[in-house]
């Protein structure tokens, strides 16, 4: 049975249910009340983490690290919601990374963190993360990180990675038209940028949580600070779209008439 060393990279993003508003401060663009907004692990990175956990449990001897660059206090808070769901060893980078950060600069900070992981076997390495993030949504950080780590096999929009007994993996990537491209990767190392994957959110397991926190709290305490300065990205404006439409609300119209209007509208060129 193959043994994998899975490094999952994931940033924090505001809880998607929150209302967001951009503001320009002395340090550049950010979100209004950013420190007060509840945060979560980026949803796609969370998919990657859950997939990593599942892969590691199915392949005994495998290990999972979670590498995250975020303000320590926020990361600690998010860990409490996350740590019961999957087993991992935390590698924390104390940095303020958000939607307006530069992908390459974030990748550099993450590369330093990955390179610092003791006991990481590069020949078994699967570098996981989200194919995009809910903040920048660029799909660039992980790819650049892969490049920095010299990983020549990269996959993006991954929904499934099925290991075979010989250590190869069948990988399904999202492509246009709601289809998947199917590839066979003969062996790690490789980079997989995950889409939603196919696993449901795992249940909260208190024992996993206790175990995780034993290593996570010291990791948080020794998190190396990393100052992101923008990486040459200049933002001349950020604004909310003016999107209010003048909605015509149709009440008390018989269903037949509603249906006719809709059919006519569909037929309009």
């Amino acid at each position: 049975m193959p043994v994998f060393h899975v490094v999952v990279c994931g940033g924090l993003v505001p809880d998607p249910l929150q209302t967001l508003e951009p503001v320009q401060g002395p340090a550049g663009w950010g979100l209004k009340n950013e420190s007060m907004l509840p945060a979560i692990l980026d949803p796609w990175a969370a998919s990657a983490l859950f997939e990593a956990d599942s892969l590691a449990r199915a392949n005994p001897g495998s290990r999972v690290w979670l590498v995250s660059a975020a303000p320590k206090a926020k990361l600690q808070q998010v860990l409490m919601a996350l740590a019961q769901k999957a087993a991992f060893e935390l590698v924390a980078v104390d940095a303020q990374a958000g939607g307006f950060s530069d992908a390459a600069e974030c990748a550099s900070a993450l590369a330093a963190a990955v390179n610092s992981i003791a006991g990481l076997d590069r020949s078994r390495l699967l570098l996981f993360g989200g194919w995009e993030s809910a903040s920048r949504g660029a799909g660039a950080t992980l790819a650049i990180l892969g490049e920095m780590l010299g990983i020549s096999e990269q996959f993006q929009g991954v929904d499934q990675a099925s290991p075979k007994p010989d250590g190869s993996l069948e990988i399904l990537e999202r492509v246009e038209g709601g289809r998947h491209q199917v590839s066979l990767l003969s062996a790690p190392p490789a980079l997989l940028g995950w889409a939603t994957g196919s696993l449901p959110e795992p249940p909260n397991n208190p024992q996993v949580g206790m175990l995780n926190m034993r290593s996570a709290m010291p990791a948080l305490q020794k998190a190396a600070p990393s100052r992101l300065t923008g990486g040459g990205l200049a933002l001349s404006s950020v604004e909310l779209p003016s999107q209010r439409r003048d909605t015509r609300v149709v009440k008390d119209m018989p269903e037949d008439q509603v249906a006719r209007e809709i059919v006519e509208w569909i037929a309009e060129k």
Binding site: Q76, M80, A81, Q84, P206, G209, M210, M213
Partner: peptide, 12 residues
């Protein structure tokens, strides 16, 4: 949490 002497678990 940062004291390491208590763990507070949400969603539980």
């Amino acid at each position: 949490m940062s004291t390491g002497l208590a763990q507070v678990w949400p969603a539980s």
